[in-house]
Amino acid sequence: MTVTFGPTVDELAPRPPAPENGRRRDAAFEYVRVGSYDEAVEALEHYGARAKVLAGGQSLVPMMNLRLVRPGVLIDINGIDAGQPYFELDRLVLPAMTRYCEVLASPTVSAGSPLLAAAVSRVGNVRVRNRGTLGGSLAQGEATAELGAVMLALGSEIIVYGPRGYRTIAAEDFFLGYLTTSLQPEEVITGLCLPLARPRRGWSFHEMSRRSGSSAIVGVAANVELAPDGGEISSARLGLIGVADRPVVGSFEAVSSLEGEVPTLAQLDAVAFAVAAATCPVDDVQASGSYRRRMVRVLARRALNEAVLRAGGRVGTA
């Protein structure tokens, strides 16, 4: 679920921000509706730092309701007709304005990226899924956004449009810090490119949360590819949420040790342990850092195991 926008414990110390002083109505702002990405970029350039883009609003507007965020201008991009997900060569291309519910209803997505569909089914609740967009989730950069884990596990790309035209950002270069991405102030996300599902490629998504629909304590997305004619792993990647101030890739060193291996469960557990050891999750109101780390190990092992099996491989019981 991508609605966690609450401050981290770091931000809480020594004083919490004070939504408790009872601010319910948003501060006033100007509203601009645009019909194309060109217009959106123009508006962003014009209004500068005062402006924020409004897509699904499921993360932004709660923050505005609590006056944690006060844009002077909202640029509403919901009117941009960006089309449907489609296949292009070996990739699945999704318009940034694709809503979560569209992801779940799309046969193109369920065929092209079942991992994405699985992760999105864990997002929030039906209302969040009706309005929230993929681009909006990425731009928010939340540490517990399921989409973040998926993008990183798949080695995906984010297409961005700005005053200097289009550029492509690799997912692993996109998440920079707490609610901070490499999106420039005048840029807007226009699309996502995910590698297509294909034979010998397996996936898995595991998430642990305290309650249905609440934000993930820890989530793991796994993407595994097997050698074409053997059972060895040719590549493996993990995307993790809930372990840092942003979505992160599971320790490259640990996971890449699986390459060339026909793994046993013990091996997967050792890798999962190393992936967990490489994380440094902090305590917050939902769980302690120590617990999160233990969950990374458990979920990473489960995700790797399931991904290998889905790819058509075996996991030895030794």
């Binding site: 609605v3 609450g6 809480l12 004083r15 939504p19 309650r211 249905s212 629909g213 609440s214 934000s215």
Partner: peptide, 18 residues
């Protein structure tokens, strides 16, 4: 003496799915 989070998103009451 300070509540760690006053957000309803963080006060977990059972949902229909729990």
């Amino acid at each position: 003496g300070r509540i760690a989070s006053s957000l309803f998103a963080n006060y977990l009451i059972p949902t229909s799915d729990d």
